[in-house]
């Protein structure tokens, strides 16, 4: 066997990283490893170059005796130390054979291994003297590992952020293109676009404020329909349960509500002083389903649109995606109504 591990009992573990030990002389390795074990440290004893190479992968520190530093081991350590990532400075504890060798060895290795934290000891030495040096080295290493994890996390966060920004930019691009394409000559393009952008921004802030568990439909609806849901003069009445929405569902529903409100303001119940809208959303009679309905009353008689507007096209596509069913749109004299019911899987946070 070229490497073996000596572990402390489970309840005595220090939580510090592993000591890699290479001490080929007599019982050195056993004696030291036992002393470390009694102090709650885990030791991996390497007997040859290949085992050492393996063991160094996530070493807390390296303890080598002078006898272990053969030409091939020195060459391996040269390469390993030079190849360390920026966050890493492996602590290396060297145990010289005699105090007289210590200084020369120190001189030589310090020049050779500039990317290591070097500590020197000389025999004769009791294991307990080494122990405090090893513990210090491991604590230093633990701090390096934390830095490594933070760097990795930061890279991941930056990548995630980058993707989100691209998604948002693409959504805004789509919004702009479609606003231009499907408006009539008398529309104020810029105003239409800005209003849509405001809805997107509103839902983003609502999502930001709700960290986990999903945002409630009412919160999204109140934000997007703000002018129509004020206390005392509510033109849109919202009936909804408190189920948390998935973020993507919340965004799509916010934009749908914006299109519905814009349409109602132009042609429907919100165009005159007396019309009202009943907005219902929640789990269906069977908890596995979700329902959404927008029912206008008291406005001018509804009639089916003559041209294919952006709003309608978006509503149909988005709601079909969300509910897996085509929404039903009706234009009775008492007012426009839209209803859709489908599987809840993509709608609610599970």
């Amino acid at each position: 066997m070229s490497a073996h591990r000596i572990r402390p009992a489970g309840d005595e573990e220090s939580g510090l990283p592993t000591v890699v030990l290479m001490a080929p002389y007599r019982q050195d390795a056993q004696v030291l490893a036992r002393a470390f074990r009694d102090a709650g440290l885990e030791t991996l004893v390497a007997d040859d170059r290949a085992a050492l190479d393996d063991a160094l992968q996530d070493a807390g520190c390296l303890l080598v005796t002078q006898e272990a530093l053969t030409a091939e081991v020195l060459a391996l350590l040269d390469d390993t130390l030079a190849a360390q990532p920026n966050w890493s400075e492996l602590p290396v504890l060297v145990l010289a054979a005699h105090s007289t060798d210590g200084l020369a060895l120190r001189e030589r290795l310090a020049q050779r291994w500039t990317r290591a934290k070097l500590l020197f000891y000389a025999r004769p030495l009791a294991p307990v003297e080494l122990l405090s040096g090893v513990q210090l080295a491991l604590v230093t290493r633990l701090r390096q590992f934390r830095l490594r994890d933070q760097i990795a996390q930061e890279i991941e966060l930056r990548r995630e952020l980058n993707h989100r920004v691209k998604n948002i930019l693409t959504s805004v691009q789509a919004m702009a293109q479609m606003t231009r394409r499907s408006s009539s000559a008398d529309d104020d393009l810029f105003e239409l676009f800005l209003a849509r952008l405001r809805s997107l921004a509103a839902v983003h802030s609502t999502l930001q404020e709700t960290n986990n568990g999903g945002v409630a439909f009412t919160a999204v609806a109140r934000e997007v329909l703000r002018p129509y849901v004020e206390e005392g003069a509510a033109r849109v009445v919202i009936e909804s349960d408190a189920s948390g929405l998935r973020a993507e569902a919340a965004k799509a529903l916010a934009l749908c509500l914006h299109e519905l409100a814009t349409n109602a303001l132009k042609y429907g119940a919100l165009s005159g002083p007396s019309g009202r809208v009943l907005l219902r959303f929640g789990r269906g009679p069977d908890a596995g389903t979700a329902t959404f309905s927008w029912v206008e009353q008291g406005g001018p008689p509804a009639s089916a649109p003559t041209r294919r507007g952006y709003g309608l096209r978006y509503l149909k596509t988005a709601l079909r995606g969300l509910f897996r069913r085509d929404p039903v749109l009706e234009y009775p004299p008492e007012g426009f109504r839209l209803e859709v019911e489908g599987p809840a899987d993509d709608v609610f946070e599970s």
Partner: peptide
């Protein structure tokens, strides 16, 4: 494409 707006564009 799962974003309806982008799909329509």
């Amino acid at each position: 494409e799962d974003n309806a707006m982008i799909a329509l564009m």
